[in-house]
Design a protein around this nucleic acid. Sequence first.
DNA 1: TTGACGTACTCCTCTAGAGGAGTCATAAAT
DNA 2: ATTTATGACTCCTCTAGAGGAGTACGTCAA
Lengths: 261, 261
Amino acid sequence: MAELPFPDLDPTSDRAVFRQIADHIRHAIERGTLAEGDKVPSEAQLMQHYGVARMTIRNALQVLQGEGLTVAEHGRGVFVRSHPPVRRLASDRFARRHREQGKAAFIAETEGAGGKPTVDSIKITEERPSADVAELLGISSEDQVIARSRRYLINGQPVETAVSYIPAEIARDTRIAQPDSGPGGIYARLEELGFRLDRFVEEIRSRMPLRDEVRALKLAPGVPVFHLVRTAYAADGRAVEVCDTVMSSDAYVLSYELPAR
Amino acid sequence: MAELPFPDLDPTSDRAVFRQIADHIRHAIERGTLAEGDKVPSEAQLMQHYGVARMTIRNALQVLQGEGLTVAEHGRGVFVRSHPPVRRLASDRFARRHREQGKAAFIAETEGAGGKPTVDSIKITEERPSADVAELLGISSEDQVIARSRRYLINGQPVETAVSYIPAEIARDTRIAQPDSGPGGIYARLEELGFRLDRFVEEIRSRMPLRDEVRALKLAPGVPVFHLVRTAYAADGRAVEVCDTVMSSDAYVLSYELPAR
DNA sequence: TTGACGTACTCCTCTAGAGGAGTCATAAAT
DNA sequence: ATTTATGACTCCTCTAGAGGAGTACGTCAA
């Protein structure tokens, strides 16, 4: 059996054994001794190398998994997590000139980067808005909204879920309430309806995903999500859409330009 | 002993016992049966209630901790995590009109929100930039930069660490290279030096913290961080500063305004 | 060549213990 | 009144097992 590239435990340290082991493996990953996609030595190998019980090894591996450094595959082994190519979202991604190309923002960007975009599980309902959404839209929570929910995938890998809320008064019986919202997406439709879009405000949070989100985005353990809420304002100052999206944090880098004025 | 507010296990389910238990507790937290700050029943109580081994209970609690829903305090118990008040960072936070008040952005904002701001562990070095920083600043990685690192706290609670890199050619022997950079902060100094700031570009990532970051920000388990890199551009298009900051995700909501043009 | 099967290896779940260490309240000693 | 000791309760670490289930791969029969 080949020697493992890990030092021995330090019995004088007050650091718990499983943490020391996690430190060794983490260090190997950071140095590149274990590269992306590499297999971490098996539980049995590690048990033998360190001479500790299996649970101690599992605790160590658990730590790394929680840090998002590794993923375990049942029956195959534990692997150093490889990071997928990220999408960089620029702050001009909703500029009108892009919309006029006739493609929705997501499709245009993804194709531009050489990926295959898909949109999935499109559901449209009419409902009462939550208090938050009503507040952002500046309407009463008694009023109805059209909720368009969907999931975005790149090369079959889910990266984002989104729900748009548009006041029913605006969107009812328009193409916005149809699964296929047409060329340029719903922002193009809103402009056709006379709501010239003026600005968007995005609020960004970062947190660990809920269980449903883990499933919908096929998230590896230890991967947080961006929670982004965008409000679209028309030229008259009226909010015409709120879009609530959850994005896998390792699929995205968000980029914004701020004026110094 | 009081009855615990959890149902029995479903022995027919193929869901692992510890996951079922985690589900019960998570559900109680979501419904509010267990409110923020409440103590989760102790391991012993849960063992007795469910009639399972202690490790099974600990696994369940581990799941919740990994989700950032609970924190364990050695010797005291496990508690539902309470979320501190968040700071909302607006996209005009670096506007010149704020700088002219004579206060650095962080101080002004925090006092405005009624908190006590502190800046901590200020260290200034002159060094060679990393490849990333050199690229953003548009300089060679042979050139020197001034690195200003510091930590921000609100009411004694660390919320953010930041390192600013400014080309040494610009900042050497100026107040920027002093621990106290003077009224209005380094952006005010840069403008005094003739670099009229034009725009900032911020790139945002979200990820789990490294070990050092957990320590520096006193992060609870299961709390991700924002990793934000801001580049400041002068009116001539030259990059004059790169600021690399790591923020506790439960202390911040980031807000940006995007033009629709 | 193909497909079924077995086997070895992997991680997953769970049990049943043990000692350690931090916290807190109370009782005893000063 | 203050300090010190004690004990109950908490979570933390670790051991030593057991059976389960998914994966990879070689063997053997069709």
